[in-house]
Design a protein around this nucleic acid. Structure first.
Lengths: 113, 113
DNA sequence: TATCCATTTCATATCATTTTGAAATAGATC
DNA sequence: GATCTATTTCAAAATGATATGAAATGGATA
């Protein structure tokens, strides 16, 4: 038996299984959202967001502050960029990264906890 | 060269590398925070949170709605529980899961996007 | 054009998460 | 106590994410 009898009534009141399923956003929206959370789910990436909160910084300063290898930083910057949390603006020889509006909001959620 | 000369001045104004490092929470806090985001970083787990938003549900109804195997659901419920986003209350033969306050706030952040 | 330097890309190794199906647990009912 | 059923646990396989160092890119300057 899938659903025990005593629960069937409660379930019916809220529209049954189909009623519950209607709560879900479509798969694409869920992927986007969970992808954003995935980007936030790493201490090194949270450090990068925290660094960018006061204002934009170039890659070299971020690298020096975090004390990690170039390629490793580049990987994490790319994850954040793909998730729409930061944006990079080439400026002469170097690239300046800053928080996007979404990135800023994610960070304030972070600080609200 | 670590930091290009033209950037040194800007960097000095914001307290240098050490000034930037002082922005970081300690490692443990970052682990806790990224751990919570990790729990949110999966479409199936987001579906579970969305299901529980209107009110508590038993495991069997959640399983039937999601259409996944028992053990798989149990795994995801456990991830959410460990992250403090949901709580399970045994009630007779079955177990009733509900959002915690933190889980509710995470969900509203989710919907605010 | 040759060179320099900041950043990214790539291949590969390592590590972590997720899925799957079978077996265990534990509470309720007979 | 025996059995039934909802849920969890476990081990293994499959999949995905991260770290690392060497090589490539591409803009700036000489």
């Amino acid at each position: 038996m899938a659903i025990p009898d005593p629960l069937e009534d409660d379930l019916a009141k809220i529209g049954g299984i189909e009623g519950l399923r209607s709560l879900f956003p479509d798969d694409e929206a869920l992927e986007t959202l969970s992808g954003r959370f995935k980007a936030l789910a790493d201490p090194m990436r949270l450090r990068i967001l925290i660094l960018l909160a006061p204002g934009p910084l170039c890659v070299c300063v971020i690298r020096e502050t975090l004390g990690i290898a170039d390629s490793r930083l580049s990987y994490h910057l790319n994850v954040l960029k793909k998730a729409g949390l930061i944006a990079g603006e080439p400026q002469g020889t170097w690239i300046i990264y800053s928080l996007t509006p979404v990135g800023g909001r994610a960070l304030s959620f972070l600080e609200g906890e």
